[in-house]
Computed example of a mutant assay.
Amino acid sequence: MAEGRRATLKDVAAASGVSRATVSFVLNDTPNQTISAATREKVLRVVRELGYKPHGIARALREGSSRIVVLFIESGLEGNYSRSYLRGLDQELSAHGYVLVVRHGPTAPEAAEQVLDAISPRAVLRFGEVYRTGHALEDLSGGWRDGLAAHTALQIGYLAEQGHTEVALALPDEAPLREIRLEFSQLAAGRLGLPALRCLVIPRSRPAAVDAVRAFREQEPAVTAIAAHDDDVALRAVTALTDLGLRVPGDCAVIGFDDNEYGALFTPALTTIHIDAEAHGRVAARELLGLDAAGLSSAPAQVLIRQTA
């Protein structure tokens, strides 16, 4: 690769000894693909070695002729962060004469190709792309300064400030970014001098959630607080604890993440982390268009202190 030239998907494929399709499947974590763990690790290692990065915080898949930008958001990534991010991205693109089209749901290669063939967009972006390239901590969306790592640390840090030392991380059955949230949470706990977080998977069904929380309480009676993957999981935890006759936060505190606004309507009202990502969306738009993003900064994330923690 020529010195100074930005690494491309083709470069990664050549250095890994695999096809570009395989590299794409690995970076996109595409389901139903039989890619061995060794091949996956090799591709990710080459990505890191070559410094392969998408444009900005997402991947520009194609330079189309239209003034349309398409953003894919996987199921499970919708929330306050994505809403405010979309607002900033849309407003910034609109200010420069571009139209944003958002597609929610599965992002299989076939679905992306259908969009490309139908409207030939200027670019196709994938929400959360940075986590599939090995550069999560270098970006606004992942770093310790103003990204997911910092916001996760804020959540765990709040519980530590309240005197909780035995903390559980409540996770959904499956969700995009679940593993990176677990990694960041454990790193945050370590930085605070807390023991490793216990992990609790809380299913969607109310009876199953109650069973899971009951079993966890029996196995980990010392845990006094639960940090949830998001507000949906946090509300499942609060409901299950209440169904078990336990007091929240008296017997166990619960804190959500990403403020879906429903938590404020519950009793007890959910304490959570609120993130303003509008500036992140504006930065993404400017980087995509090759414009200077200096001077854009988001409001700091904050703990919305209510009644559960």
Rank of each mutant, 00 (worst) to 15 (best):
T107F: 03
L89S: 02
A112G: 12
R132M: 13
G64L: 00
R122I: 01
R62L: 14
A60C: 13
R83Q: 11
P109Q: 13
R62P: 01
S75Q: 12
L125I: 10
S141W: 04
R87W: 04
T133C: 11
P121V: 01
G56F: 01
P109S: 14
G76C: 11
S66H: 06
A58Q: 08
T107M: 08
A108Y: 07
A136P: 08
V115P: 06
S84D: 04
V101I: 08
G56A: 04
L125T: 07
G79V: 09
G105V: 06
G56D: 01
D90I: 05
Y52C: 05
H104I: 04
G128D: 06
N80G: 12
G76P: 11
T133D: 07
R67F: 00
D90Q: 15
E138K: 07
R126F: 14
R103N: 06
A111L: 15
A136V: 09
W144H: 13
D139A: 06
E129F: 11
S94C: 11
R48C: 02
Y85S: 03
L125G: 02
N80I: 00
R83T: 11
A108S: 13
I57G: 11
A123N: 08
G88W: 07
R145M: 07
G134A: 12
G88R: 04
A112D: 08
L140F: 05
P121W: 02
V70P: 01
I73T: 11
L61V: 10
E129A: 15
Y52H: 07
D90H: 13
G128I: 03
A95S: 15
S82P: 09
V130F: 07
F127E: 12
L61Q: 09
S66E: 01
E74D: 14
S94V: 13
R48V: 06
E92I: 07
A123G: 11
H104M: 12
R87H: 05
I73E: 01
R122L: 13
I57P: 00
